[in-house]
Design a protein around this nucleic acid. Sequence first.
DNA 1: TAAATAGTGTCTATCAGACACTATCGA
DNA 2: TCGATAGTGTCTGATAGACACTATTTA
Lengths: 220, 220
Amino acid sequence: MYVAPSVVSNAVLLQYSDGELFITLVADTAAKPQWRLPGVAVNRTQTSLSALDHTLHTTVGLHREDITYREQLYTSEFMFGSYSTVCISYLYLSRDIRWSKSTQQIGVFPIYKLPVLSEADSSIIRYALSRLHAKTLYSTITSFLLPKVFDLTQFQRAFETITQQKVDKRNFRKKVQQLDILTTYKQNSSAKEPLLYSFKDTSLAFLPKPFPPRKTAKKS
Amino acid sequence: MYVAPSVVSNAVLLQYSDGELFITLVADTAAKPQWRLPGVAVNRTQTSLSALDHTLHTTVGLHREDITYREQLYTSEFMFGSYSTVCISYLYLSRDIRWSKSTQQIGVFPIYKLPVLSEADSSIIRYALSRLHAKTLYSTITSFLLPKVFDLTQFQRAFETITQQKVDKRNFRKKVQQLDILTTYKQNSSAKEPLLYSFKDTSLAFLPKPFPPRKTAKKS
DNA sequence: TAAATAGTGTCTATCAGACACTATCGA
DNA sequence: TCGATAGTGTCTGATAGACACTATTTA
């Protein structure tokens, strides 16, 4: 007789603020919280995304409008006893999160100071970060983490945070300029306030030429 | 009551030969064959990969040793009536396929002359090809489609087939040489037979610098 | 001897990557 | 006036990309 595996889905929910990436985790209220990715069992009247959106809304209190980007990551499978569970994981990006009521304990952690997690959750998070890292180099995915209006210093800082490498300010600006992905939002009103920009395109755009870090930096 | 969606998995099974990519499809034996990706329902005592490997072996007659590469592509969901089905798709690469007995009608089609397929299958195939295309530029994935020993003309031809673009012979060779991913397999025995090479590494390697086609080709 | 194939080298334009100073503002 | 921040330009080395001929083999 055919019996399908259980199906669950969960989300790596990231946001960026001031040079740090944060992830939102949940824990069942208990003396010693065991943190995990927010997720839900999917039943056959739903899709994984509808179930997940609903859960993030009700149990994490995430407003749907705050989600700026969503992408499927990986589907993993686990054997519990002799039965398997399929887990579909997604990456969610958000600018700001305004938490409303939630039914679970929620924690927001800097991505490099995570609490103890299951190996499966850790692995998904690592994968999410590597995808985000890679996409930062060849797309405008950073726009979903930055505020709508920002200055180039903020942009560079977010870039450096996500890619985990420092870049030269002038080279970064030169590159951004030549990529032609930003529009000036406001002239510097007074003498020396930073110029403000926003992304030309509100959807994900792929860069004709990726960001430099092609890692060859040979010294002569 | 919780009832899980159905779970199925299927494979985009590709092979390369003489400047063409081929895909293996199946059809239930019928007057008018309706082709589709080979796949199988997954039940809860299996994982999608074990189920898929088994099915490819029995219904397509694919020998396991002929599979050189396997990668998860995407998990899609469909509503049939009011119940959903989760479909986990994989990319399989193979050098040669030696078909043994199969329980289904099998067809091998050039990738650009496909029969009529469901939109879902077409979409997965397009995605598989775009992934293969992209990976060809920044990894040694081509090694899983080429014979173990080959000459540079063959390599270039496979590269051009997969990426759908012509490249200059000298530039291609220069690039390959500087990437240092090949070893000479045999000196040209007699005067003018092609030099034979094989990949240094039998596993997938990522190129420190991707293949050129960064699409700028400006004419002056 | 004509046609197909294997192999090879150079030049130029572009870009990545290194590097330093000035102006302004606020403490 | 000191320190922090915003903004800007140049030089060099590497390489992507364009381009043509020779040697050999086989029909």
